[in-house]
Design a protein around this nucleic acid. Structure first.
Lengths: 345, 345
DNA sequence: ACGCTATTTTAGATCGATCTAAAATGCAAA
DNA sequence: TTTGCATTTTAGATCGATCTAAAATAGCGT
């Protein structure tokens, strides 16, 4: 059946309206060249014959595709869920649509996804780079003239647009708060695969501790997952000179650590403070509610889109790096809901 | 600079390899027509000149785009996060890539997204239809020859491929369990916007109650969100002849209802049982852990892809509806962790 | 060397839009 | 009526791949 039906192209619209293909093309793109009367007639004809614009054909003459690639490590993590939601909404508002690809933190999968996105001629990329991505990888994209914004994670030593949370300052504030509550021996969990985001979080903890003359944190090289959080908790609880504060690299790790510690008999907030990073909606809702550093992933997604559209419009513009403030959210899991003095970001 | 650089097309590869464009095209698509020696030479040339396949150009000759549209209501809900993750992985394995679009349960946004996806000539659609989608909308897609699989929600009265969870049986089992624990007065929360999935969940509750000669549940027409859950909790708690079981339409609603009830002084599991649907990872982790009906969203995503690829390959195949089993997961929020007899799905 | 078939390769048209450069049209002034 | 200028419209080439139908080449038996 699809053999016989003649597909409806701009030629059919032109025939129906009694004008040339060129005129129809101009009308479709709202060119001011065409007379108002003609425009109306053509639009009516397009409607009448059931015309559907073919973006692929237009792209062949070198036009933008109005698509971008959205590469994240995992979409089931609510943190990236929010980031993607923010980006998707901003793209939709700008008339763009996103190809979604996930890498599971594997550079091979990331490479395959990039190849496919380039074949589809995306206008640009929002990239939460997989661990192990090299500055050379980022430079290669730039060399191909592919606009690219790194979100959340910045490949160490790479150049280019970036947006993410102020992990360094956020974790400093968190650590200061824990110190003020009387905690002295710190552990940091979830560093099995390192990336710039994690690096800064750990740096923030170390900086604050150093400032107070306290020993560096114990670094637990477990996975940045629920499961990894549980493992970190078990390791930690078995120690002789056990830490009294467990700073998890993100909320999901804390969600894994807390029930594990509870099973082992720990009183969260009493025997040990546990904190996360991200402030995903579930954080307010745990047992106990989680003290965390809010990084506003939805906002990061929006900002990444803004940077990307700017880069697409002006490929040679100066590079821009937007670090969004991180906000300390104090709940019960750190032992005391003592608010910071006003003015602390 | 992009003006001067001659873009590398199949013509350049042909020139470099000393063959015709047609031959290069055959090599690119692994045609058996071309001699092994020639094939190798062309592949080497493609590599040498840095050739990148242009899918858009190929599409113009009527080839598949190898893209599909993935339309969900919200991507920040972990339930859909998992569904999308499952679908994305399955698509990637099949050499497809997904356009992601979200509708926020608005038919207008859904309509805009569909239009854009059609302009991009997606090979098919996985659709979690927005509330208010009509059978006519689905029929229109079919009339356009657009392969479409409905996931999770099936537009009432529509025809076509579908996959989702067995909400009816799942909620019947859940209700039976609550009845066995001694609960008698039921409420059901989250029906502000109705869809087939919600309909079946409510039906399941009603069927089980009827079977036991118990009164129909009180239906709370609150939003299917965290916020809506909290509102339902407050309404319910103020009642004189208060229900003793709150069945929430999904986990997120339960996550909103539980802390609200606790603030009002209710003992979850003692004064009132609260349950969810979905079994997102956070469910095991709440305060208290949530009794829920596991619907395996990741699996639903995979299954939707299988159905869609089948439909794309065989547009005229018989329609298929795959209802995946839902599993009762008993935790503390229902008051007692009494396991069902073996054999209950 | 010849015809014959089987295997490889290719020229040129084609998909559906856009772009360029030129042609048609309208209108006012000369 | 003609000229000049601005406004509208258009023919035809073009983007980069694929397809068709035909041509070139190879292989084989006689």
């Amino acid at each position: 059946m699809s053999k016989t039906e003649p597909r409806i192209t701009l030629t059919e619209v032109a025939r129906h309206a009694g004008v040339s293909r060129a005129t129809v093309s101009l009308v479709l793109r709202d060119s001011p060249l065409v007379a108002a009367e003609t425009r109306a007639r053509v639009q009516a004809s397009a409607e009448a014959v059931g015309y559907l614009y073919n973006r692929g054909a237009a792209t062949m003459r070198g036009l933008r595709t109005r698509t971008v690639g959205l590469l994240v490590t995992e979409i089931d993590n609510p943190f990236f869920g929010e980031l993607v939601a923010g980006a998707e909404a901003a793209l939709e508002a700008a008339g763009y649509i996103a190809f979604l690809a996930t890498t599971a933190d594997s550079v091979e999968r990331q490479q395959r996804a990039l190849q496919r996105l380039r074949e589809h001629r995306v206008d640009g990329l929002i990239l939460c780079a997989a661990g192990g991505t090299t500055p050379q990888d980022i430079a290669t994209l730039a060399g191909q003239g592919m606009p690219c914004v790194q979100a959340m994670r910045q490949v160490r030593g790479s150049r280019g647009d970036f947006t993410g949370a102020d992990n360094l300052l956020g974790l400093e504030h968190l650590t200061e708060h824990l110190i003020r509550l009387g905690h002295r021996r710190f552990a940091f969990a979830g560093t099995a695969v390192m990336n710039s985001s994690l690096r800064h979080r750990l740096d923030g903890v170390e900086t604050a501790l150093r400032r107070h003359g306290l020993p560096a944190p114990l670094v637990l090289r477990t996975a940045a997952t629920r499961q990894g959080g549980a493992e970190a908790a078990e390791t930690l609880w078995r120690m002789r000179d056990r830490p009294d504060a467990l700073v998890c690299c993100n909320d999901v790790v804390a969600f894994g650590a807390i029930p594990a510690l509870q099973r082992l008999g720990a009183g969260i907030g009493q025997d040990i403070a546990v904190t996360g990073v991200g402030d995903v909606p579930e954080a307010a809702n745990g047992n106990p509610p989680l003290t965390t550093v809010a990084t506003d992933p939805r906002r990061i997604g929006q900002e990444a889109v803004r940077l990307l559209l700017r880069r697409i419009a002006q490929p040679a513009a100066a590079m821009e790096q937007v670090v969004l403030p991180a906000r300390l959210v104090i709940r019960a899991s750190c032992g005391a809901a003592m608010p910071l003095p006003a003015g602390a970001a």
